[in-house]
Design a protein around this nucleic acid. Structure first.
Lengths: 248, 248
DNA sequence: CGCCTTGTTGAGCGGATTCAACACTAGTGG
DNA sequence: CCACTAGTGTTGAATCCGCTCAACAAGGCG
């Protein structure tokens, strides 16, 4: 029933964000692919401490990557967007060190854990790309660390929204000028920023009354990107386009 | 004058922390190696925004990996210890996204940026290991994010000290029961934990008067590891030994 | 219709910050 | 040789940002 997507016609490949792929690598990736999977919102794709037999590339949909503490708190590590490679840890280390949960319906490209090593062994270029992705991801987490560690609440929130705006825009899910889907709750944002829900709400309200943004019904509208970037403590040279990265 | 270290006699290899290496991989790594380098404390090995022609594995010595914000603040991303692979970003992405600075004299194993791709291409097993290291590093940063985002100051500090204690112990630099070198300043710790210097000092003092630790003259003594782990909000199952990881 | 999730707002508290001053050490140059 | 400076560690006082507690509105769903 559900048609499998051919890699050659991969809906993500068309975005300028992703590096081009030569025929050999594309063919190898096609063989690496084990199938597809479609899941509902709220599905836990990976669970902290568990071993996952599969890992995925997100074709469409969004989610969250998070860790939990013994006392029940949750820290969102990053937002999961189309093109993201998730579950790499279970292929490398013994178990997942974080959980991954969807917040929308999600369409995934599935790979087998056991075939990662052969895949990387037989396709050095792709192995290089996997490492690259891993390094990109590490940098994203490090940037979040800087934001949370050094900035006050308003700056953090503006920064997070601005980054989501550019990241989501880059994978084409724009709904018109300055409008992007943002299928998260204020609690999700709070857990990502290390803030309480109440305070997140207040700051959010503040940014809205300032006219920079509005966020209703899971749609974020950025009315003044420059102002938002300023509020986020970004200098002009930081507002470049996101560098290209590989897609597995 | 300065004798080069043979990979076969690599001073790090003996630690249980690191995975064993077969002869082929060891030989390949030896050819990958471009030389060694010794630097003084306070040397900036990599600079945020710059392209580094080399990258390194730390043979001995310690340092810091950090990012700076436009308003002059600094966030320490991680502490650099022996066995760490530093500068991978410059080999993968266009430029370094963080700086690396030494806090002691450091002895480094040097690799050329241009030979990373061939190295990974010709040695799939080692390519896999590089990715593994990158994933381990990402997880360390993510754990710091959880700590900073969700825990109060005392818990953060206890957690950071406990982790440094186990990490540093694992690379053999112990100075007796519960004693390890900790060549950082309180300002370094503050920047790592997202706390002010003053508050870091107070909490530190608190942990010392509680008798858990003492930290003087760049030497940390952990008097009661269990108590420290408790203070860090760790449950019993989290206090396992650090999993093995590869060494490049 | 009642329940649950999500968003919103007020009030008061407290943890962490900033500002400030001072002790100690090592290094430097007159 | 010693005054001088810079870096590091220590402590007090006052302020404030963000938290907790609390209550309520609105929508979705069984």
């Amino acid at each position: 029933m559900k048609a499998e997507t051919d890699c050659a016609a991969c809906p993500l490949r068309k975005f300028a964000l992703f590096e081009a792929l030569d025929e050999n690598d594309e063919e190898a990736t096609r063989r690496f692919k084990d199938g597809e999977r479609r899941v509902d919102p709220g599905t836990i794709l990976m669970h902290e401490g568990m071993v996952s037999e599969d890992f995925y590339t997100v074709l469409s949909g969004m989610g969250l990557r998070y860790k939990t503490t013994p006392d029940g708190k949750r820290q969102v590590i990053n937002f999961v967007l189309p093109g993201d490679f998730i579950g790499l840890q279970s292929g490398l280390m013994s178990e997942m060190k974080h959980s991954v949960e969807t917040t929308t319906r999600m369409h995934l490209c599935r790979f087998k854990r056991s075939s990662l090593l052969p895949f990387m062994r037989n396709n050095p270029g792709r192995a290089f790309d996997v490492t690259w992705l891993s390094a990109v991801e590490e940098n994203l987490v490090a940037e979040a660390l800087v934001s949370i560690g050094q900035q006050p609440a308003a700056t953090r929130l503006a920064w997070a929204l601005h980054r989501l705006y550019t990241r989501i825009s880059a994978v084409g899910a724009d709904l018109g000028p300055g409008r992007i889907p943002l299928p998260y709750t204020q609690q999700d944002m709070a857990d990502a920023l290390g803030l309480s829900l109440v305070h997140t709400n207040r700051i959010l309200r503040l940014l809205q009354t300032d006219g920079m943004i509005s966020w209703r019904d899971k749609v974020l509208t950025v009315h003044d990107e420059r102002a938002l970037a300023n509020r986020a403590g970004m200098t002009a040279d930081m507002q470049e386009t996101i560098p290209r990265r590989p897609l597995i």
